[in-house]
Design a protein around this nucleic acid. Structure first.
Lengths: 137, 137
DNA sequence: TCCTCGTATCGAAGACCGTCGATCAATGCC
DNA sequence: GGCATTGATCGACGGTCTTCGATACGAGGA
């Protein structure tokens, strides 16, 4: 399995306003330059952190799920699944699928009361999740 | 085109700790209840707002793009495309594709200096974008 | 015990996305 | 003008996601 990130070991040149035209033959443009030509780049985030963040973003990258989070954020009590199926023009399996994705991501939790299932924002959500959903009014 | 959201016009019952078992026949469980059974639900976010937020989240829902934003957030100058192609184990068209997605979302902007293209965080990004990328250290 | 109802799961269809090789456009040097 | 280099675009492939109908599961009520 290949590494996901590589690094330019020796930065050669960098962003420069006067880079457009230079008549002097500058060593900054050695012909063997192929990659890492311009400047060193910040150390990448840890792969686990990147996957955590992109995973949260991906789950929130759906209009229906954003609406679900909004409804839960505005609710004072757990919300019944049947209310979600009523609120969206989607089939019941689809709503269940979206709720499952949010639960798998740690954004919501579910509880059963008799026949009904209720969902709420995860009281123990991670700081990253809390920050990510904060801009859903 | 059907409406994307519907509303329960008449809420019937709500979340209740003692809902599991009740021997009294309660009108809260009328047999003709099918949807909107439990409680009124918050007004949905405006469709434009939902699409704006989910669109931002979707663009950030990819590990490579999160890394790109991280690198740009840590950089003090615009970063050359060639440095991104050096940093990731991805082909040049793929890197260009990711940068284009970030640019289309208003997260980054690009400028050309001679043969090179440089990218930076959009100085005029929307408040939603600014908030969304804030948890990318 | 059987039946009903709410919800989760399964399987499939269609759309969308990430990736790459090939190619094109634009810039600058010879 | 010809050539080399950078980066964007095109077309295609494989995988993933959203959606749905059908079905399974579990909890109550008759």
């Amino acid at each position: 399995m290949p590494e996901r990130y590589a690094f330019a070991s020796t930065p050669v040149n960098a962003y420069n306003e006067s880079m457009t035209s230079s008549t002097v033959a500058t060593p900054l443009l050695t012909p063997d330059r192929v990659k890492g030509c311009c400047q060193p780049v910040a150390a990448p985030l840890l792969e686990t952190r990147v996957d955590e963040l992109s995973g949260i973003y991906k789950v929130l990258g759906d209009p229906t799920r954003v609406q679900i989070v909004h409804i839960l954020a505005a609710a004072t009590e757990p919300v019944c699944v049947c209310d979600f199926t009523a609120a969206f023009e989607l089939g019941q399996p689809t709503v269940s699928h979206h709720l499952g994705k949010l639960r798998d991501a740690g954004i919501v939790t579910s509880l059963k009361r008799g026949v009904w299932a209720f969902y709420q924002l995860n009281p123990a959500m991670t700081p990253a999740v809390r920050a990510a959903i904060q801009l859903i009014d």
